[in-house]
Simulated assay, not measured.
Amino acid sequence: MSGIEEKARRARDKKALYGTDVDLDSYQSEAKPQSIVDDAEDLPNTVKKAALDVGVTLDDESSGAYVQMDQTPVVAKSLHEGVEIMDIASALKKYDFLQDYWWKLVAADADKYTADVAEAPPTGFFIRARKGMKTVFPVKSCLYLGSTNLNQRVHNIVIAEEGSELHVITGCTTPSHVQRGLHIGVSEYYIQKNAKVSFTMVHSWGKEVEVRPRTGVTIAEGGSMYNNYIMLRPVKTLQTFPTATLAGRGAVASFNTV
């Protein structure tokens, strides 16, 4: 058992410092695998409509796309040279260096929610903007909870290398027939020297969905992070406490919540 798994095991019943406690056992932990497609335009219409409802159009200009249906990454595609987009499980297998980023800004034993994600097979996106690469069009992602009563676990890593500029729009949503569920999203952002990142996340969940984001950000000298979090519809419970570390002179972080 790895150190991360051991930490997670010890924190299985650790309540969060803030927010309503959620009974994880009341949600299904296994999801039916979904079919992978070559392009976002080939997704089912129900998924494209749900994405559009949170402002994510998957068929127009972008720097790439990532779509996850329940626990299956169905699209992970870059459309811009210098921007890398992969599902996190594949990225961890390909890059040994990612172990230096994995669970470094968010602790696996922070609470029962991070522990639950750490013990599950990794799913989520890996996005990297290469050194000096500046994008105009955003990377678009959609985290789609399509099964009733599912515990959807996500772990994302974003790396903006020195002097890069990256824009990401993420829509998190359910179709109209899914009202109850749990979404636990762990996100770690590494913004290197003089890099700029804007990240807009739009949530539109069913009224009985419980949402537990866990976000850590580190920003080096001259770097910036502009984070917009928009909740379009009420949910059963939400608890979030994103944390940014300004790790160098001139580093800037801005968090806006609507």
Results as ranks from 00 to 15, higher is better:
Val211Asp: 08
Val211Ile: 04
Val211Met: 03
Val211Leu: 06
Arg212Ser: 15
Arg212Gln: 12
Arg212Asn: 13
Pro213Val: 09
Pro213Asn: 12
Pro213His: 05
Pro213Thr: 10
Pro213Lys: 15
Arg214His: 04
Arg214Pro: 01
Arg214Glu: 03
Thr215Ile: 15
Thr215Ala: 09
Thr215Asn: 10
Thr215Leu: 14
Gly216Lys: 05
Gly216His: 02
Gly216Asp: 05
Gly216Tyr: 00
Val217Phe: 09
Val217Pro: 00
Val217Ile: 13
Val217Tyr: 02
Thr218Met: 04
Thr218Asn: 07
Ile219His: 07
Ile219Pro: 11
Ile219Thr: 08
Ile219Cys: 08
Ile219Met: 13
Glu221Val: 10
Gly222Tyr: 09
Gly223Arg: 04
Gly223Met: 08
Gly223Leu: 03
Ser224Tyr: 00
Ser224Gly: 13
Ser224Thr: 08
Met225Leu: 04
Met225Ile: 10
Met225Gln: 04
Met225Trp: 00
Tyr226Gln: 05
Tyr226Lys: 09
Tyr226Asn: 15
Tyr226Ile: 02
Asn227Val: 03
Asn227Trp: 03
Asn227Gln: 12
Asn228Ala: 08
Asn228Ser: 06
Asn228Thr: 11
Asn228Asp: 12
Asn228Cys: 06
Tyr229Gln: 09
Tyr229Val: 01
Tyr229Leu: 07
Tyr229Lys: 02
Tyr229Ala: 03
Tyr229Cys: 01
Ile230Glu: 01
Met231Ile: 02
Met231Phe: 05
Met231Arg: 14
Met231Asn: 10
Met231Leu: 10
Met231Ala: 12
Leu232Tyr: 01
Leu232Gln: 05
Leu232His: 03
Leu232Lys: 14
Arg233Cys: 13
Arg233Gln: 13
Arg233Asn: 15
Arg233Tyr: 03
Pro234His: 15
Pro234Trp: 14
Pro234Gly: 15
Pro234Cys: 14
Val235Ile: 14
Val235Met: 08
Val235Tyr: 02
Val235Ala: 03
Val235Pro: 04
Lys236Leu: 07
Thr237Glu: 12
Thr237Met: 13
Leu238Gln: 15
Leu238Pro: 11
Leu238Ser: 14
Gln239Cys: 14
Gln239Trp: 12
Gln239Glu: 05
Thr240Asn: 10
Thr240Tyr: 14
Thr240Met: 13
Thr240Ile: 05
Thr240Cys: 09
Thr240Asp: 02
Thr240Val: 08
Phe241Gln: 08
Phe241Val: 11
Phe241Thr: 08
Phe241Leu: 07
Phe241Cys: 09
Phe241Pro: 00
Phe241Trp: 04
Pro242Ser: 15
Pro242Leu: 12
Pro242Gln: 14
Pro242Glu: 06
Pro242Met: 15
Pro242Ile: 12
Thr243Ala: 14
Thr243Cys: 03
